[in-house]
């Protein structure tokens, strides 16, 4: 999707390919998904926290649905929407030259959908928790709404927003069901969770142990960071 990271990363520590390949795919996909989710999730979170319009609750509910839906259902909808005949698929072919299903870009889309609610809900909670008098003071100083959002509200809410971005990154790294369906087990899209599944049932127990441990390490690092960033009430 976005060529943020060169495809061939420098494998400086000579990590064996059975870890390196899925790890680099997972990291790259999750990073690309997180970039998209950060921009869209923080923006929508801001709108939900600050806007006073009817239907706010409904919008938040709909965009939170991937939290409550089985990942297989999310994967099914993405498969049929992105891959089934129709305008969306035509647009993909027009933009990328091929449909996104069964490609690397497809898993990025799946991870975006799965991780978006976390970024949106954490941002919404953090932004709603900012003392409105700071914003009133900024209005009295003559700052435009955009400048208030960028220079006052978001910096004051930054801990919760960063926590949400970190959670979204973790969720993107950890997605299994939706990724599996949209990738159709293409080797280009074998992420860490899928590699672990394969190792458990078709590979060696030692490889499974290592793959699981790496993922626990990543997840624990993220959660410890989120814990230090303090408390918001995303749900």
């Amino acid at each position: 999707m976005i060529a943020l990271i060169p495809h061939s990363w420098l494998n400086a520590f000579a990590i064996p390919p059975w870890i390196w390949n899925p790890l680099s795919i997972s990291l790259r996909a999750a990073l690309e998904a997180t970039v998209v989710v950060t921009v869209a999730g923080v923006a929508l979170g801001y709108l939900l926290a600050k806007g006073r319009f009817p239907g706010r609750g409904a919008i938040e509910t709909v965009f939170s649905l991937p939290m409550a839906l089985p990942p297989t259902v999310v994967g099914y909808y993405l498969l049929t929407r992105l891959g089934g005949p129709g305008p969306i698929r035509d647009a993909e072919v027009h933009l990328f030259g091929h449909p996104l299903t069964f490609t690397f870009a497809g898993i990025v889309v799946a991870q975006i959908v799965e991780s978006f609610p976390y970024c949106m809900r954490f941002s919404r909670a953090a932004i709603a928790g900012v003392d409105p008098r700071f914003e009133q003071a900024a209005r009295a100083m003559g700052l435009s709404r955009w400048r208030i959002a960028l220079f006052v509200t978001l910096p004051l809410a930054r801990r919760g927003v960063i926590a949400g971005i970190a959670m979204a990154f973790g969720r993107a790294m950890g997605d299994f069901g939706a990724t599996m369906i949209i990738s159709g087990s293409a080797p280009m899209a074998t992420t860490m969770p899928i590699a672990l599944y394969n190792a458990v049932f078709y590979g060696s127990h030692e490889q499974a142990m290592v793959l699981a441990l790496v993922q626990v390490g990543v997840a624990l690092t993220i959660l410890l960071g989120v814990g230090r960033l303090g408390r918001v009430r995303p749900w």
Partner: peptide, 28 residues
Amino acid sequence: TQRRRVGMVFQDGLLLPHRSVLDNVALA
């Protein structure tokens, strides 16, 4: 509010914690 050209001073100052003193004033 933005176009009324009023300045405000609050009881607890409400300085933005993420900006230096100078940048707090410069913002206004």
